[in-house]
Structure formats: C-alpha cells, structure tokens
Amino acid sequence: MSTDYQRARAELGRKLRELRVDSPGGRLTGTELAERLRWPQSKVSKLENGRQTPTDDDLRAWAEAVGQPAVFPELRARLKGFESHIRSWRRQLAAGHAPVQETWNSLVGESRTLHVWDSHVVNGMLQTADYARSLFECLAEFRSSPRDTEDAVRARMKRQEWLYRPGKQLNVLMWESALRAQVCPPEVLAAQLDRLLGVVGMDTINLGIVPWDAALRLLPGNSFWILDDRLVTVEDWHAELWLDDAETIALYRRVWDTFAESAVFGAEAQQVIARVRRSIRD
C-alpha cells in the first residue's frame, strides 16, 4: 500500500474522530459509538486510526450516528479521492468481471494513444474470445468472484472496436513469456497466436515482442497501461493502481521506451510469434 494512500486514509480517520468528539449531542466515546452502530469497538478504532478502509455505507452510518448526516458527501468525496488510486479487486469484482470491463471500455474509449507492457498474458485488446474466456474463468475461480464470464467476454470484445477507429494507436509490447503462458487449452493458445500474426502491420497497432534471448535493461515487472499522458494503470494481485501524477506517468513511459529497445517489430515479431506457434502441439 502506498504512503500517499496510507496518509489519505489516516486523514479520513482523523476526520471521523473529530466528528465523534464534536457530536452535537455531546462527546461520544468510541465504545458508545460502536454500540449505536452495532459494530465491534475494534472497527471504530481501526477506522479512526487509518487501519481499515471504510465503505460508503460505513461513512453514511457514522455521519448519522454522530448526528451530522450532512457531512456524508464530504466524507464520501474524501474516500473516492484516494480509493480511485488503489482499486482493490475484492471491491471491483464484487459484482463480477463484466462491470470492470465496462469501466475499461470507457477509459479506453476516451483515449487516443495507448502504450502497454504485458509480461504474462496476451494483451486484452488483442485477445480472442476463447482466450479471454479462459482467463476470466481462471480469475473468477481464484478470487471466488461472481461468474459472469460471457458478459465479461462480450465487453472485452466490444472494446476491441477501438482498434478500427481512425486516429487511434495501440503501442503494445509483450514479453515472449506472455505468448507461451499455458493459461488456456493448446488449441485456444494456437488460435490466439494466429490472431497476433494477423494484426502485425495494422495501421492502428504497433506490436513489439521482447524475445526471451533479448538483453533486458530492466526486470520485466508488472504489466501496465499508459492512457494518453493522463493515466497509468498497474495490475497487482491485491489491486489495480491508478496513477495520474505527471512524474509517475513520465517514469512509466521511460520504462516502456526501455523495453521497446529490447523488442522486435514487424516481420521479426512475426517470426517470434510463429516460432512459439510451431511449438504448440495440437
């Protein structure tokens, strides 16, 4: 968890404590507030000390319990302000993968240029439906999230319409490991690699492959997206990070440019993809 995130959560906790102490009906102790809310006293303590992230419902209940319901919009705005930068998968996937994909459709739709690094799987903008289906099934099982696989696949496939709009540019780099990851049946992976062979040379796609035997100036690290020059998203196991400060965006662009120096493009990229394709046994 980032220092900025911790600081923002601690500040929200201090605000909650102030509201409890300055309750119009008289100062409330943490124990008294917990009794009103029918919460464990430990939850009140964790929220006030920035050791637990509240939900919207928590904030609404707190504001009403301390006799200041009008302050809820301010509390909610504070929460959204720092939560937007660290978006936990537990919360995002509470209703399944499809809503997350729809959010991404909006993000991508607003963008003209994407720079993407994928180190472990084929990029979503270039996936086949069967490949995407395998990934969603795998992740839903791992995270015990609602299984809305077909809706999620349709949403991801809809996003790919972006590739056929004038003025759009996808600059995507993939490590060779992403081509070889056995995250789906062999026949599905073979069809996915055929798809990649077919998109090389498209006007809106600049596809680079970093071969296994290429010299690397940086460790592969996590996959990330740069949307225009306004937002970077990084995927980790616990959450998706949304980073929008100029310095961080510039850093990730330097990372992308560094990986690009190790990548091959055009016919050379096709040769790497074809080599992996031949290694798959039907």
Rank of each mutant, 00 (worst) to 15 (best):
G167V: 06
I209R: 04
L59K: 01
L173S: 00
A152N: 09
W212D: 15
W39M: 12
R87E: 14
R281Y: 02
L33K: 05
G67V: 03
E64C: 12
P24K: 11
D257E: 15
L28S: 04
D229Q: 14
Q52A: 15
L216S: 02
D244T: 08
M125A: 13
Q92H: 04
I249S: 00
D203R: 15
Y252A: 06
A155W: 02
R27V: 08
R180G: 03
K15G: 01
V100S: 10
G81N: 14
P24V: 12
S223A: 13
L193Q: 10
Y5V: 02
A191K: 12
S88R: 15
D257H: 14
A140Y: 03
Q68F: 01
D58K: 14
P220K: 08
L139M: 13
A214P: 07
L37K: 01
G96K: 09
R278I: 01
K80Q: 12
Q160E: 09
R87F: 03
V234R: 10
P211T: 03
A215D: 10
V210D: 01
Y131S: 04
Q92R: 14
D229G: 05
D282C: 11
I249W: 09
V44P: 04
D22T: 09
W62K: 08
L243E: 00
R254C: 08
R278P: 00
L163R: 07
A152P: 00
V188I: 15
D203M: 05
G124L: 10
A8T: 00
R9I: 00
T248A: 00
V21W: 01
R78L: 11
A215N: 12
Q271C: 05
W89M: 08
R143M: 05
Q192K: 07
T233G: 04
N171M: 06
A95G: 09
W242Q: 05
A181H: 07
T55A: 06
A214G: 07
Q182Y: 06
R14Y: 02
I273W: 00
L197W: 05
V121C: 14
L93I: 05
E261A: 13
D22C: 04
G208I: 09
V200S: 01
P220M: 13
I249E: 10
E261V: 06
S119P: 02
V21E: 14
L189W: 03
I86L: 15
D4L: 04
E240G: 12
S88P: 13
